[in-house]
């Protein structure tokens, strides 16, 4: 769908933004990227990237999206088809699943990480790179 106005300030017609003064209670779903600067309580299902900005709070049983970038506060489980990044200043309690997971210095996280990756043969003990590893039960705060 063509964007008819630029006044919305969204980068794309399908992009969405929950401003810092806004509070959403309920289910959010759909296509396009979502930027949360305010408060969200409820499940989020996106075919797009989710960004939880600094100062934002999200409480959710389940979040599923492509890439997920968290700089704010999140309580809930994340299932990402892309990368998950916890930026410095992020506070996250919940389980994370993604194609890759980055926890920056200064981020606080408590929960499980589920990120499949190939172990090098010398660590996995299996030849031909068949070994697979899985990080789990990571809990702690950095800083």
């Amino acid at each position: 769908m063509a964007q008819t106005r630029t006044a919305t300030g969204a980068r794309d017609a399908s992009d969405a933004r929950i401003g810092s003064a806004a509070r959403v209670r309920g289910r959010i779903q759909g296509q396009g990227n979502l930027l949360v600067e305010g408060h969200v309580e409820g499940n989020v299902t996106l075919r797009g990237d989710l960004t939880i900005a600094e100062g934002a709070t999200v409480t959710s049983e389940a979040i599923s999206a492509q890439a997920v970038h968290i700089a704010g506060s999140l309580e809930g489980n994340v299932t990402a088809s892309g990368a998950v990044r916890l930026a410095s200043g992020a506070r996250v309690r919940g389980d994370l699943q993604g194609s890759s997971i980055v926890i920056d210095d200064g981020a606080r996280f408590s929960g499980k990480l589920d990120c499949e990756f190939d172990l090098p043969p010398e660590l996995g003990g299996a030849s031909q790179g068949e070994a697979r590893g899985r990080a789990s039960n990571v809990s702690g705060a950095r800083r």
């Binding site: 919305t8 300030g9 992009d15 969405a16 810092s20 296509q31 396009g32 979502l34 600067e37």
Partner: peptide
Amino acid sequence: ASTVIGAGI
């Protein structure tokens, strides 16, 4: 706008 609910949302 501070809050935008995009077309796909």
